[in-house]
């Protein structure tokens, strides 16, 4: 098993773990952490699959760098919104609101 494939398999595991967390965990902070796990998984797969041929391919690295920046920005926005929600309503979970109140 090449090192690239190992990265890819671990990446898939992380991605599935993250996706499950985002869908199943009620606490918003956990959902946000799960998203970061999911993102890392996707990045690992990107890097892992891209270096199957032995040589180093720079394109996936550029992609992953860009992706990390995006993920950090998204996490920041999510955290800011969570703090705001907590300050306004004291909640840290999304209410099971019926769509039309």
């Amino acid at each position: 098993m090449s090192s690239g494939l190992v990265y890819a398999v671990v990446g898939v595991l992380l991605f599935v773990l993250g996706a499950a967390g985002m869908l199943l965990l009620p606490h918003l902070l956990r959902k946000i952490l799960a998203f970061n796990l999911l993102g890392s998984g996707a990045f690992l797969i990107l890097v892992g699959l891209a270096q199957r041929d032995g040589g180093v391919d720079p394109v996936p690295h550029a992609m992953v760098l860009t992706g990390i920046v995006v993920a950090v920005a998204a996490t920041a926005l999510a955290l800011a919104l969570l703090r705001r929600l907590h300050a306004l309503s004291g909640r840290t979970q999304l209410a099971d609101e019926s769509a039309d109140e």
């Binding site: 993250g18 918003l28 999911l38 996707a42 996936p60 998204a74």
Partner: peptide
């Protein structure tokens, strides 16, 4: 959160295509 989950899935798709 929906949007991030979706983007994550899309990104994984991109990774698989690139691979």
């Amino acid at each position: 959160l929906v949007s991030l989950l979706a983007s994550g899935a899309y990104l994984l798709g991109v990774a698989l295509i690139y691979g």
